[in-house]
Simulated assay, not measured.
Amino acid sequence: MTEQVTRCGYVAVVGRPNVGKSTLLNHILGQKLAITSRKPQTTRHNMLGIKTEGAVQTVYVDTPGLHIGGKTALNRFMNRSALTALKDIDVAIFVVDRMRWTDEDEMVYERIKYLTCPVIIAVNKADRLEDKSQLLAHLEWLAEKLPDAQIVPMSALHGHNLDTLERLVEGYLPESEHFFPEDQITDRSSRFLAAELVREKIMRQLGAELPYQITVEIEEFKQEGRILHIHALILVERDGQKKIIIGEKGERIKRIGQEARKDMETMFGSKIMLNLWVKVKGGWSDDERALRSLGYQEY
């Protein structure tokens, strides 16, 4: 009896901020792993999303959006992380937003065009276009820019045409032993995922008021019987930002905690006791040493 050939490889999901990379990863994995919001630069770290189906294991690398004007140490860290993900990969998925092409898309393109591995252009939100002839012209323009790339119109949010995208990716993966156990879905710890869920709820709730200078640190993560106790510290840079997050009579932080707890209970399969604090730590987002101590390290 012949042994089944196993395939495995790394697939970087790249693009400018807020183009749908994390939503795409969550839909491919069939569960929420990467946090999402309408705000650009929601994703700050590279994170692996591992999908194993039979003989094929695909290791997706979700990356921060490449953006122009890295003004702070945090911005520079995010751009470096995204570029690091392009090293030693087997496939790149370049996510673009239907008809829009910005300076930041051009910036990603300038990095992508030198790759020697296969590139797939995933044209997101293609299902929202009424006039398909417009889309066709745009796809032809993209094909001229990256003539060797495969182009897949799709919708990350509604899962439209993702099976085509996955089949293409699978065809490019090299024969290899699997890198991770069959049941592992990410390289990140539960503490990291808990911190990200709290940060997602803050970003979704605050909208235009959102201070970008926020981060979340998990100070305690302890299972006691059927209850998982999580203590999360929300760091901001100014007193005014602390007031915004706490809200009138503590209403906003209470709502952030309720929503984060709900997602955590689904993710960790346990009853959650979540405690949130807010603390001011001036200048952390532009301090390389502070960033390292808060877990902003390149993998």
Score class of each variant (00 low, 15 high):
Asn275Ile: 11
Glu265Met: 13
Gly269Pro: 03
Glu288Val: 10
Asp286Tyr: 02
Lys262Leu: 10
Glu288Tyr: 02
Val280Trp: 05
Ser285Phe: 02
Gly283Asn: 10
Ser285Arg: 14
Val278Ala: 09
Lys262Gln: 15
Lys279His: 00
Val278Glu: 13
Asp263Glu: 09
Asp263Gly: 09
Val278Ser: 11
Ser270Tyr: 05
Asp286Ser: 07
Gly269Met: 00
Trp284Met: 12
Ala290Gly: 04
Asn275Trp: 09
Met273Ala: 12
Met264Thr: 12
Gly283Met: 13
Ile272His: 06
Gly283His: 05
Trp284Pro: 02
Gly282Ala: 12
Asp286Asn: 13
Leu274Val: 02
Val280Tyr: 08
Val280Met: 08
Asp287Trp: 01
Leu274Ile: 05
Met267Asn: 03
Lys281Val: 14
Arg289Pro: 05
Leu274Asp: 00
Ser270Phe: 03
Leu276Ala: 05
Trp284Thr: 13
Ile272Glu: 11
Thr266Met: 04
Ala290Trp: 06
Glu288Trp: 06
Met264Phe: 04
Asn275His: 10
Lys271Glu: 11
Arg289Met: 14
Asp263Cys: 01
Phe268Ser: 04
Leu291Gln: 12
Val280Ser: 03
Arg261Leu: 07
Asn275Arg: 15
Lys281Gly: 02
Lys271His: 09
Asp263Val: 00
Ser285Lys: 09
Lys281Tyr: 09
Glu265Asp: 08
Ile272Thr: 10
Gly269His: 00
Ala290Arg: 12
Trp277Leu: 11
Gly283Thr: 07
Asn275Leu: 13
Val278Gly: 02
Met273Trp: 12
Trp277Arg: 15
Asn275Tyr: 13
Trp277Gln: 15
Thr266Ile: 10
Val278Ile: 10
Asp263Leu: 06
Ser270Met: 07
Val278Met: 06
Lys279Glu: 05
Lys271Thr: 12
Asn275Gln: 15
Arg289Ala: 13
Met267Asp: 00
Val280Asp: 11
Ser270Cys: 11
Arg261Ala: 02
Leu276Trp: 01
Met264Ala: 14
Asp263Ser: 04
Trp284Asp: 07
Thr266Val: 14
Asp287Lys: 06
Lys271Trp: 02
Glu288Ser: 08
Met267Phe: 10
Leu276His: 11
Gly282Val: 15
Gly282Tyr: 13
Ser285Leu: 04
Lys271Asp: 11
Asn275Asp: 12
Asn275Thr: 14
Met264Trp: 02
Met264Tyr: 04
